[in-house]
Amino acid sequence: MTFEKFVFYLFAAILVYAATMVITRRNPVHSALFLVLAFFASAGIWLLAEAEFLAIVLILVYVGAVMVLFLFVVMMLDIDLATLRAGFINYMPVGALMALVMAIEIFLVVGPGNFGLDKMPAPAARPASYNNTEDLGSVLYTIYMYQFEVAAVILLVGIIAAIGLTMRKRPETKYQNPSLQVRVKKADRLRVIKMDAED
């Protein structure tokens, strides 16, 4: 076994273990943390496939931002696991069927029929100076420009929709207006009056 193979199987084993833990742990916070581990393992596999840009961006975006927000929400929520588990047996047959269909689909698409070494030989290793960030950027901003812009617009719509859904005026909450606070003068707030001393 070559060193690359050993590293691949190591990361693959961690990935499968972590992914199993994500759906079997009782505590949702543990599940979220195992999902983080799964992201790390898949980033490792991507690094092995010389896709260093994707690997680092996976860590940066999913681990560094998305999962932090996930954990944030999961920790705040008081999830009642008893009611969640109650429906487990009822939904079991449907779920198992879905899982089977998915597994068959994945096998048909990426199985040995399409993705064997005979169908797709291993690409030659790139030299150490090769920079796939630059390659990815130059393709993304020239050939796939329109697709890229469309994706950006879809994301923008998503952002606006999310803000629109959560934004509601609550009359009872008090807001501060910093510019008014800065602009305030002494004369607006303070009045010095003369009064006789009382005894």
């Binding site: 916070v29 943390l33 983080v36 260093e52 840009f53 680092i56 961006v57 860590i59 940066l60 681990v63 560094g64 931002a65 932090v68 954990l71 944030f72 920790m75 100076s129 090769y130 920079n131 960030t133």
Partner: peptide, 25 residues
């Protein structure tokens, strides 16, 4: 001498927050 050194730094500084969140929880 990574080609994507700056990304690597950004990724690592972004996972530093886990220590704080996990400690708090």
């Amino acid at each position: 001498d990574l080609n994507a050194g700056l990304l690597y730094i950004l990724a690592l500084t972004s996972i530093g927050v886990y220590g704080v969140i996990i400690a708090g929880w």
